[in-house]
Design a protein around this nucleic acid. Sequence first.
DNA 1: GAGCGCTTGTGAATTGATTCACAAGATATA
DNA 2: TATATCTTGTGAATCAATTCACAAGCGCTC
Lengths: 207, 207
Amino acid sequence: MKHIADSTVRRLSAYLRFLEDFETRGLTTISSDELAKRGGTTSAQVRKDLSFFGSFGKRGLGYSVPELAGRLREILGLGREWKVIIVGAGKIGAALARHHGFQQRGFTITAVYDADPQIVGLDLDGLAVRDAGHLERDIHRDHPDIAVLAVPEQAAQAVTDRLVRAGIKAVLNFAPAQLQVPPEVTVKTVNMAMELEGLSFALTNRE
Amino acid sequence: MKHIADSTVRRLSAYLRFLEDFETRGLTTISSDELAKRGGTTSAQVRKDLSFFGSFGKRGLGYSVPELAGRLREILGLGREWKVIIVGAGKIGAALARHHGFQQRGFTITAVYDADPQIVGLDLDGLAVRDAGHLERDIHRDHPDIAVLAVPEQAAQAVTDRLVRAGIKAVLNFAPAQLQVPPEVTVKTVNMAMELEGLSFALTNRE
DNA sequence: GAGCGCTTGTGAATTGATTCACAAGATATA
DNA sequence: TATATCTTGTGAATCAATTCACAAGCGCTC
Ligand SMILES: NC(=O)c1ccc[n+]([C@@H]2O[C@H](COP(=O)([O-])OP(=O)(O)OC[C@H]3O[C@@H](n4cnc5c(N)ncnc54)[C@H](O)[C@@H]3O)[C@@H](O)[C@H]2O)c1
Ligand SMILES: NC(=O)c1ccc[n+]([C@@H]2O[C@H](COP(=O)([O-])OP(=O)(O)OC[C@H]3O[C@@H](n4cnc5c(N)ncnc54)[C@H](O)[C@@H]3O)[C@@H](O)[C@H]2O)c1
């Protein structure tokens, strides 16, 4: 398959969210223009994004809301359950573990780990924090798909190396670090400090 | 000034982080190539990024670490304190309020708000959660620079409208919503569901 | 079933970002 | 002062993403 840009995937994800909203409001068809308005883009962009994967619309009519939603779920790989583990049960890790919004898109948090004996064993809305020493054993046994990294910056690379060695192929990283991984592993980093600095730049260099 | 791409600003932010690391390790000069290796980019990219703002290096030598760090702080607007308020003191809002990592870059959390009377008054590491009803009054009085939005999706647009009307010009949004704001307001959205879906896509469409 | 209004799908054109490649400046050495 | 070595700064070239623009398809009406 042709290479798909990251920005395209993000927009597909946004389109799906809008479609689900339209679906609950009982609408059955939608045009690329309505979808674009909702997502702050253009109708040509919407059609181009979809065209990488096939043609899902009807000329003169638009797209069937449930059909397009289904296609997008398929494209994004949301037709199955993904097992997610969280490493680091501190402030951000605990907030994520107790967030139930990911479940509805098929991301199930199956385990949470920490290295601090004070934290191991704590209950996070029904999930007991496990000992990070058992990470490898558990990964070999349970085969989680995605690891969320919520440990301090200094520990981030070392924990990543352990995860990768144990077979993890996808990491969502919250530490403000540029992680080194082999090419078959995908990392997405959420760097809040960087976002704040982007705002600082915008406020400073407003013309 | 010429328009600067978002991706450029993010890289500048990353360079600054590396420079600070080099600084603590006692290094005094660095080449664009070393900076590039550390940030997973190329030396030409580093030099091009910097060239938008001036020429800070010495041919044959590289860049002075403390000087370049200073210039980057200036460019990013980090030479001052930014007052940040957090709206929504739930799981994610509380985690952010209790995170002390933003302070060292000059982002001071000055207040946290919530609409739930059960939550108003709670102490978050020394910050008392204020009543969201006082948002406008407090913004007029304290002039915060940046608002972090950590309220449920359904409340996000309404709260944003209130913030914008009260004069806020920069918003860091954690709700999975595409916020509508006038052009003089900058919004950055951290959408974790979208990041997870990006990983799902990568795992599914691996060639 | 011809004509009209609407919207898709997609090559072509354009705009934007990254990479190339090299002249020119800086230091060091003799 | 001449020469060798290194690395910047930047136009030009390439690569990538977005926008344009329009032929073609679909449904509706008469
Ligand atoms: N809290 C926030 O709002 C926030 C915001 C932005 C970025 N971050 C980043 O997220 C990461 C976590 O932040 P936090 O505020 O949750 O910190 P925290 O100190 O509250 O939590 C970190 C947890 O990781 C655990 N840990 C340390 N080493 C470990 C290891 N090797 N294996 C397993 N667990 C380990 C610690 O015991 C601790 O419980 C940091 O990198 C931080 O910079 C946090
Ligand atoms: N917790 C997470 O890990 C996580 C992850 C991804 C995204 N998010 C998003 O972040 C947002 C907050 O999530 P959360 O898990 O912290 O939810 P939460 O329910 O724990 O907290 C939300 C808080 O906002 C407050 N609130 C509601 N309306 C308000 C208003 N009008 N003014 C001020 N405060 C108001 C509520 O009282 C509550 O305390 C949501 O949009 C969620 O989708 C959270």
